[in-house]
Amino acid sequence: MISFDHVSFAYEPDRPVLSDVSFSIGAGEAVGLIGANGAGKSTLLQLILGLLAPTAGQILVGGLPVTKENLREIRRKAGLLMQSSENQLFLPTVREDMAFGPRNYMVSAEETERRIDEVLARLDLAHLKDRYNHKLSGGERRMAAIAVVLCLEPEILLMDEPTITLDPKNRRRVITITQSLTQTRLIASHDLDMILDTCSRVILLADGTVAADGPADEVLRDRALLEAHGLELPLRLQG
Protein backbone atom coordinates (compact mmCIF):
# COMPACT_ATOMS: atom_id res chain seq x y z
CA MET A 1 0.00 0.00 0.00
CA ILE A 2 2.85 2.38 0.81
CA SER A 3 6.29 2.10 -0.67
CA PHE A 4 9.34 4.30 -0.12
CA ASP A 5 12.12 3.75 -2.62
CA HIS A 6 15.39 5.48 -1.68
CA VAL A 7 13.56 8.60 -0.57
CA SER A 8 15.43 11.65 0.69
CA PHE A 9 14.12 14.96 1.87
CA ALA A 10 15.59 18.18 3.22
CA TYR A 11 14.00 21.46 4.29
CA GLU A 12 17.38 23.12 3.76
CA PRO A 13 19.84 21.77 1.17
CA ASP A 14 22.65 21.01 3.62
CA ARG A 15 20.47 19.57 6.40
CA PRO A 16 18.74 16.38 5.25
CA VAL A 17 15.80 15.21 7.32
CA LEU A 18 15.43 11.87 5.54
CA SER A 19 18.25 10.16 3.66
CA ASP A 20 17.78 7.20 1.37
CA VAL A 21 14.76 5.79 3.20
CA SER A 22 13.28 2.59 1.78
CA PHE A 23 10.50 0.40 3.13
CA SER A 24 7.12 -0.87 2.12
CA ILE A 25 3.90 -1.49 4.00
CA GLY A 26 1.38 -4.08 2.89
CA ALA A 27 -2.41 -3.81 2.88
CA GLY A 28 -3.97 -4.10 6.32
CA GLU A 29 -0.65 -3.83 8.15
CA ALA A 30 -0.40 -1.74 11.30
CA VAL A 31 3.02 -0.14 11.50
CA GLY A 32 4.44 2.04 14.24
CA LEU A 33 6.79 4.83 13.27
CA ILE A 34 9.03 5.74 16.17
CA GLY A 35 12.05 7.93 16.72
CA ALA A 36 13.32 10.80 18.83
CA ASN A 37 12.14 14.38 18.32
CA GLY A 38 13.23 15.65 14.92
CA ALA A 39 13.79 12.14 13.54
CA GLY A 40 11.51 12.93 10.60
CA LYS A 41 8.33 11.05 11.54
CA SER A 42 5.88 13.85 10.77
CA THR A 43 7.87 14.78 7.66
CA LEU A 44 7.55 11.20 6.44
CA LEU A 45 3.77 11.28 6.89
CA GLN A 46 3.58 14.55 5.00
CA LEU A 47 5.64 13.11 2.15
CA ILE A 48 3.14 10.26 1.78
CA LEU A 49 0.33 12.74 1.26
CA GLY A 50 2.28 15.00 -1.05
CA LEU A 51 2.28 17.91 1.37
CA LEU A 52 6.05 17.88 0.88
CA ALA A 53 7.96 16.70 -2.18
CA PRO A 54 10.96 14.38 -1.79
CA THR A 55 14.32 15.65 -3.01
CA ALA A 56 15.15 12.15 -4.28
CA GLY A 57 13.51 8.75 -4.64
CA GLN A 58 9.94 7.69 -5.25
CA ILE A 59 6.92 7.14 -3.05
CA LEU A 60 4.01 4.95 -4.08
CA VAL A 61 0.65 5.02 -2.32
CA GLY A 62 -1.87 2.38 -3.33
CA GLY A 63 0.23 1.78 -6.44
CA LEU A 64 0.16 5.44 -7.44
CA PRO A 65 3.32 7.55 -7.47
CA VAL A 66 2.97 10.64 -5.30
CA THR A 67 2.85 13.26 -8.01
CA LYS A 68 0.77 16.37 -8.45
CA GLU A 69 -1.61 14.60 -10.83
CA ASN A 70 -2.32 11.81 -8.35
CA LEU A 71 -2.64 13.89 -5.20
CA ARG A 72 -6.42 14.02 -5.22
CA GLU A 73 -6.74 10.25 -5.51
CA ILE A 74 -3.97 9.62 -2.99
CA ARG A 75 -5.58 11.94 -0.44
CA ARG A 76 -8.85 10.12 -0.91
CA LYS A 77 -7.13 6.80 -0.26
CA ALA A 78 -5.05 7.99 2.69
CA GLY A 79 -6.34 10.01 5.62
CA LEU A 80 -4.13 11.83 8.09
CA LEU A 81 -4.97 12.31 11.74
CA MET A 82 -3.02 15.46 12.45
CA GLN A 83 -1.06 16.07 15.62
CA SER A 84 -3.30 18.97 16.53
CA SER A 85 -7.02 18.25 16.45
CA GLU A 86 -7.66 22.00 16.74
CA ASN A 87 -6.16 22.45 13.31
CA GLN A 88 -7.94 19.44 11.89
CA LEU A 89 -11.39 20.67 12.85
CA PHE A 90 -12.10 24.02 11.24
CA LEU A 91 -15.86 24.14 10.74
CA PRO A 92 -18.43 25.06 13.39
CA THR A 93 -19.87 21.61 14.14
CA VAL A 94 -18.61 18.03 14.08
CA ARG A 95 -21.20 17.10 11.46
CA GLU A 96 -20.10 19.86 9.10
CA ASP A 97 -16.46 18.94 9.53
CA MET A 98 -17.23 15.31 8.77
CA ALA A 99 -19.18 16.28 5.67
CA PHE A 100 -16.45 18.56 4.32
CA GLY A 101 -14.25 15.79 2.85
CA PRO A 102 -16.95 13.62 1.25
CA ARG A 103 -18.63 16.65 -0.30
CA ASN A 104 -15.31 17.71 -1.84
CA TYR A 105 -15.09 14.25 -3.37
CA MET A 106 -18.58 14.66 -4.81
CA VAL A 107 -20.18 12.13 -2.48
CA SER A 108 -23.92 12.82 -2.48
CA ALA A 109 -25.53 14.58 0.48
CA GLU A 110 -27.50 11.42 1.41
CA GLU A 111 -24.45 9.17 1.27
CA THR A 112 -22.44 11.71 3.27
CA GLU A 113 -25.13 11.77 5.93
CA ARG A 114 -25.19 7.96 6.00
CA ARG A 115 -21.41 7.86 6.43
CA ILE A 116 -21.51 10.42 9.22
CA ASP A 117 -24.11 8.42 11.14
CA GLU A 118 -22.30 5.16 10.51
CA VAL A 119 -18.87 6.43 11.62
CA LEU A 120 -20.24 8.19 14.67
CA ALA A 121 -22.19 5.10 15.70
CA ARG A 122 -19.14 2.89 15.20
CA LEU A 123 -17.02 5.16 17.38
CA ASP A 124 -19.85 5.61 19.88
CA LEU A 125 -19.83 9.35 19.25
CA ALA A 126 -23.38 9.93 18.03
CA HIS A 127 -23.86 12.50 20.79
CA LEU A 128 -21.16 14.71 19.26
CA LYS A 129 -22.82 15.03 15.85
CA ASP A 130 -24.26 18.52 16.22
CA ARG A 131 -21.90 19.76 18.89
CA TYR A 132 -19.80 22.84 18.26
CA ASN A 133 -16.13 22.02 17.82
CA HIS A 134 -15.01 24.84 20.09
CA LYS A 135 -17.10 23.40 22.92
CA LEU A 136 -15.53 19.93 22.79
CA SER A 137 -13.01 18.79 25.37
CA GLY A 138 -9.53 17.77 24.22
CA GLY A 139 -10.49 14.10 24.26
CA GLU A 140 -13.73 14.64 22.40
CA ARG A 141 -11.92 16.76 19.86
CA ARG A 142 -9.48 13.93 19.24
CA MET A 143 -12.32 11.46 18.72
CA ALA A 144 -14.08 13.90 16.42
CA ALA A 145 -10.87 14.30 14.40
CA ILE A 146 -10.68 10.51 14.00
CA ALA A 147 -14.33 10.48 12.88
CA VAL A 148 -13.59 13.26 10.38
CA VAL A 149 -10.79 11.22 8.83
CA LEU A 150 -12.80 7.98 8.77
CA CYS A 151 -15.72 9.68 7.05
CA LEU A 152 -13.70 9.70 3.82
CA GLU A 153 -13.46 5.90 4.13
CA PRO A 154 -9.70 5.86 3.59
CA GLU A 155 -7.84 2.66 2.80
CA ILE A 156 -4.79 3.95 4.60
CA LEU A 157 -4.76 5.74 7.92
CA LEU A 158 -1.82 7.88 8.93
CA MET A 159 -1.80 8.97 12.55
CA ASP A 160 0.54 11.61 13.91
CA GLU A 161 0.86 11.30 17.69
CA PRO A 162 -2.74 10.14 18.18
CA THR A 163 -2.53 9.93 21.97
CA ILE A 164 -0.67 13.16 22.62
CA THR A 165 -2.26 15.39 25.31
CA LEU A 166 -4.93 12.80 26.14
CA ASP A 167 -5.83 11.64 29.63
CA PRO A 168 -5.53 7.89 30.37
CA LYS A 169 -9.19 7.17 29.68
CA ASN A 170 -9.24 8.92 26.32
CA ARG A 171 -5.85 7.46 25.47
CA ARG A 172 -7.26 3.98 26.08
CA ARG A 173 -10.25 4.85 23.93
CA VAL A 174 -8.05 5.93 21.03
CA ILE A 175 -6.08 2.70 21.38
CA THR A 176 -9.28 0.63 21.32
CA ILE A 177 -10.53 2.50 18.26
CA THR A 178 -7.18 2.09 16.50
CA GLN A 179 -7.16 -1.63 17.25
CA SER A 180 -10.64 -1.99 15.80
CA LEU A 181 -9.70 -0.44 12.45
CA THR A 182 -8.98 -2.66 9.50
CA GLN A 183 -7.26 -0.11 7.28
CA THR A 184 -3.55 -0.04 6.66
CA ARG A 185 -2.20 2.03 9.52
CA LEU A 186 1.01 3.98 9.94
CA ILE A 187 1.19 5.49 13.41
CA ALA A 188 3.90 7.98 14.34
CA SER A 189 4.21 8.27 18.09
CA HIS A 190 6.44 8.56 21.13
CA ASP A 191 3.88 6.58 23.10
CA LEU A 192 5.62 3.24 22.75
CA ASP A 193 3.08 1.45 24.93
CA MET A 194 0.39 2.48 22.47
CA ILE A 195 2.54 1.34 19.55
CA LEU A 196 2.99 -2.02 21.29
CA ASP A 197 -0.78 -2.29 21.69
CA THR A 198 -1.74 -1.33 18.17
CA CYS A 199 1.08 -2.26 15.79
CA SER A 200 2.56 -5.53 14.66
CA ARG A 201 5.57 -3.92 13.05
CA VAL A 202 7.78 -0.98 13.97
CA ILE A 203 10.02 1.27 11.91
CA LEU A 204 12.59 3.18 13.92
CA LEU A 205 13.79 6.40 12.35
CA ALA A 206 17.06 7.94 13.46
CA ASP A 207 19.19 10.62 11.85
CA GLY A 208 17.00 10.54 8.78
CA THR A 209 17.45 6.83 8.11
CA VAL A 210 15.66 3.62 9.01
CA ALA A 211 17.60 2.36 12.03
CA ALA A 212 15.38 -0.67 12.56
CA ASP A 213 12.42 -2.28 10.88
CA GLY A 214 10.90 -5.39 12.38
CA PRO A 215 8.21 -6.98 14.54
CA ALA A 216 6.97 -4.61 17.26
CA ASP A 217 7.59 -7.22 19.90
CA GLU A 218 11.27 -7.43 18.98
CA VAL A 219 12.10 -3.80 18.29
CA LEU A 220 10.27 -2.46 21.32
CA ARG A 221 11.99 -4.96 23.64
CA ASP A 222 15.48 -4.03 22.43
CA ARG A 223 16.56 -1.70 25.22
CA ALA A 224 20.01 -1.03 23.74
CA LEU A 225 18.59 -0.14 20.34
CA LEU A 226 15.95 2.18 21.78
CA GLU A 227 18.30 3.93 24.17
CA ALA A 228 20.88 4.41 21.46
CA HIS A 229 18.29 6.42 19.57
CA GLY A 230 16.94 8.56 22.37
CA LEU A 231 14.02 6.32 23.33
CA GLU A 232 13.16 4.09 26.26
CA LEU A 233 11.49 0.74 26.65
CA PRO A 234 7.70 0.93 26.82
CA LEU A 235 6.68 1.48 30.45
CA ARG A 236 5.06 -1.92 30.75
CA LEU A 237 8.28 -3.65 29.66
CA GLN A 238 10.49 -1.73 32.08
CA GLY A 239 9.64 -4.22 34.84
Partner: peptide
Amino acid sequence: DRAEDLFRAMQLRGWHGHFH
Protein backbone atom coordinates in the same frame (compact mmCIF):
# COMPACT_ATOMS: atom_id res chain seq x y z
CA ASP B 1 1.47 28.82 10.87
CA ARG B 2 -1.95 27.81 12.13
CA ALA B 3 -3.65 29.02 9.00
CA GLU B 4 -1.22 26.92 6.98
CA ASP B 5 -2.04 23.86 9.07
CA LEU B 6 -5.74 24.50 8.60
CA PHE B 7 -5.20 24.88 4.89
CA ARG B 8 -3.39 21.55 4.82
CA ALA B 9 -6.25 19.93 6.72
CA MET B 10 -8.58 21.26 4.04
CA GLN B 11 -6.36 20.11 1.20
CA LEU B 12 -6.12 16.63 2.70
CA ARG B 13 -9.87 16.38 2.58
CA GLY B 14 -10.06 17.16 -1.07
CA TRP B 15 -10.43 20.94 -1.03
CA HIS B 16 -9.29 22.36 -4.33
CA GLY B 17 -10.37 25.96 -4.22
CA HIS B 18 -14.13 25.48 -4.26
CA PHE B 19 -16.32 25.37 -1.22
CA HIS B 20 -19.30 23.11 -1.30
